[in-house]
Design a binder for these strands. Structure first.
Length: 483
DNA sequence: TTGATATTAGT
DNA sequence: CTAATATCA
């Protein structure tokens, strides 16, 4: 053994998708053992899969995190390169005995982490990884037979009833190691790189403020009010009665135990059964996130393959023009177009609308869900492999939670039901601002002359929903092989 | 203990 | 229809 003990030796905490110091399991564990120096590595292999909105949010979060450490006499080391080389090099230069990090459950990250473990072993540096990103670790929630769940509801019941960890404490200032600048190896960066330094354009979308403080503000805001109306209003996109924590949970600018704790506190203040149920409905959304993390952990191939087996290949259509119209928010289905424009403008889409635009692409246009998933990955600030893949495959009827009736959304009915006053549509589709809500909901079925009169600049529908519905049913019946 | 069958529910 | 569980022979 190169080191007799890790009790007093310096340690590195490798930040990845946990851009916070509070409620951070690996960081807390390291700080208990001795001084710890935090480090973030700009990994080109990861940046290759990234996009401007996500990197912009990440850089803002890193600045907040670095400030947090500065204010306590520490520093967040920044480095660029392959973590297999960077981490052993920093450990060597600073004489660190151990590197710790929190586990990431996506397939690519797991491969990278295994390679980093081998590199550290070769360099005789100790390492440890911790379960942190979700409340209940993959493998900890199984059926009575010990299998992994593929239906959400049963998973939720077990998830809900299981005891949960409290948030972990942030390290004390005296547990933070601040290395001498002269000791730092060449791979470290003196300052935070810009988007341009990393080879990215400025994002088209406006990016929300990132970091632990704005994340906590969002959580506190939500728990003071909207969480009690969540069950009733969460599906109305104009209300935006949601937590808006998706990007924070993706980047770990807030810990999920802290989020759960805050919702449990809110539950204690609930006024009546309906408010309690509303809080539980939100907690159930946290469980969805964990359900999909488990699914991805045990089925890493779902990033590119259907979760559900069909007898024959699904005959997706190659329709570049329709795909482009969908991306541009020019399909002539108002609520679909509003959602796709929100995606471009904000790097975010309300969840109900995500399901709706995904159903439109995969069922009305019969375009492969992978095309939609790729576009979301490019544009969403909160893109998370597990959640987005789970959502897309659910909408495409290739995922978990198979249902007896075939899942096709009617975009007109959905608009009427969830955006009755067309407030959401008008917010993102200015061409329709002077139209009546009724005209907006019925837009695809109006006469051409009528459409020309109401909003000459807004497109006619690119497909006929009723026709495409039949076509989708035929396509999926053929794939099932039971026609 | 096992296997067949009923029950429940599906963002 | 299917998954998971409960029930019963």
């Amino acid at each position: 053994m190169p080191h007799e003990s890790s009790e007093a030796g310096m340690q590195l905490h490798w930040h990845r998708r946990d851009l916070r110091a509070d409620d951070n399991r690996a960081l807390a564990a390291a700080a208990e053992d001795g001084p710890v120096c935090p480090v973030f590595v700009f990994d080109d292999a990861v940046l290759d899969h990234a996009s401007p909105p996500r990197v912009a949010f990440m850089l803002d979060a890193l600045l907040s995190l670095r400030t947090w450490y500065w204010e306590r006499g520490g520093d967040l080391l920044l480095a660029r390169g392959d973590p297999r080389e960077v981490l052993p090099a920093i450990a060597d230069a600073l004489d660190a005995e151990r590197v710790v990090w929190n586990k990431d459950y996506s397939g690519l990250a797991r491969e990278r982490d295994a390679a980093v473990r081998r590199a550290l072993d070769d360099a005789d540096v100790e390492r440890a990884s911790y379960h942190d990103a979700i409340i209940h670790e993959p493998g900890s929630i199984t059926t009575n037979e010990g299998d992994h769940y593929s239906v959400y509801t049963y998973f939720w019941k077990k998830w809900r009833d299981r005891a949960k960890d409290d948030p972990f404490p942030a390290p004390d200032a005296d547990a933070l190691a601040s290395p001498e600048p002269d000791d730092l190896p060449d791979v470290t960066l003196p300052s935070l790189p810009t988007l341009d330094d990393l080879g990215f354009e400025e994002p088209e979308a406006s990016i929300p403020e990132a970091g632990p403080e704005p994340a906590r503000d969002r959580l506190a805001d939500f728990c003071e009010g909207d969480i009690y109306r969540y069950e009733e209003r969460r599906d109305y996109p104009a209300d935006e009665c949601t937590s808006r924590l998706s990007a924070d949970l993706k980047w770990g600018t807030i810990g999920v135990r802290e989020v759960y704790d805050a919702t449990d506190d809110a539950k204690a203040f609930a006024d009546g059964e309906a408010e309690i149920e509303s809080v539980e409905e939100f907690q159930s959304q946290l469980a969805w996130r964990e359900f999909y993390a488990h699914v991805l952990n045990f089925n890493p191939e779902v990033v590119s393959e259907n979760f559900k087996d069909y007898e024959h290949e699904i005959e997706w259509r190659s329709d570049p023009e329709a795909l482009q119209a969908w991306k541009d928010g020019e399909t002539g289905y108002p609520i679909v177009d509003a959602g796709m424009r929100q995606l471009r403008e904000e790097g975010y889409v309300h969840n109900r609308v995500r399901m709706l635009v995904a159903a439109f692409l995969t069922k009305d246009l019969l375009v492969d869900w992978r095309e939609g998933y790729d576009w979301f990955r490019e544009k969403l600030v909160d893109h998370d492999t597990a959640n987005d893949n789970g959502g897309w495959q659910w909408a495409a009827s290739t995922g978990t939670d198979a249902q007896p009736y075939f899942r096709i959304f009617n975009p007109m009915t959905q608009g009427e039901r969830y955006d009755p006053d067309a407030e959401y549509v008008k917010r993102y589709v200015p061409e329709l601002r002077d139209a009546d809500p009724e005209q907006i909901h019925d837009w695809p079925e109006l006469a051409d002359a009528e459409r020309e009169r109401i909003a000459p600049d807004y497109p006619a529908p690119i497909v006929d929903h009723a026709e495409r519905r039949e076509l989708a049913i035929e396509t999926f019946e053929a794939a099932r092989g039971d026609d």
